[in-house]
Design a protein around this nucleic acid. Structure first.
Length: 99
DNA sequence: CCCTTGACCAAAC
DNA sequence: GGTTTGGCCAAGG
């Protein structure tokens, strides 16, 4: 059995460019309700190149947090065609990734 | 084993 | 719309 964060990373790596997901969906995909634990896993993220944690946002549409700074996260998403206004995703439901 | 900490969530106000 | 409150779960001290 992989650790909780390993499972989170596996899911994140499945996300294609231009798509996003939420902490809740990740937890749901793991058949748990550890929303907060998912966030903890992101913080423990070993490497942003293998784990695109910038594609994970809050369920309410807000960007959430990022180790390198929220602005950096916004910039990365914007670079993938996802626009953000006042720290929240414009059309979240349209960009959600299907696991 | 108990307590604290989080990149959270939903509901209520 | 924002802010507060209670709940949720894993990991570390």
């Amino acid at each position: 059995m992989k650790t909780f964060n390993e499972q989170c990373y596996d899911l994140l790596m499945q996300i294609t460019k231009g798509k996003v997901t939420t902490y809740k969906l990740i937890a749901e995909a793991l058949n748990t309700k550890a929303y907060r634990a998912v966030g903890n896993a992101m913080k423990n993220n070993p490497n942003v190149l293998t784990v695109p944690c910038h594609r994970v946002v809050n369920s309410n549409g807000y960007v959430g947090g990022y180790v390198n700074g929220i602005e950096k996260k916004i910039e990365l998403l914007k670079n993938e065609g996802i626009y953000i206004s006042d720290n929240k995703i414009i059309n979240l439901s349209g960009y959600l990734f299907r696991f």
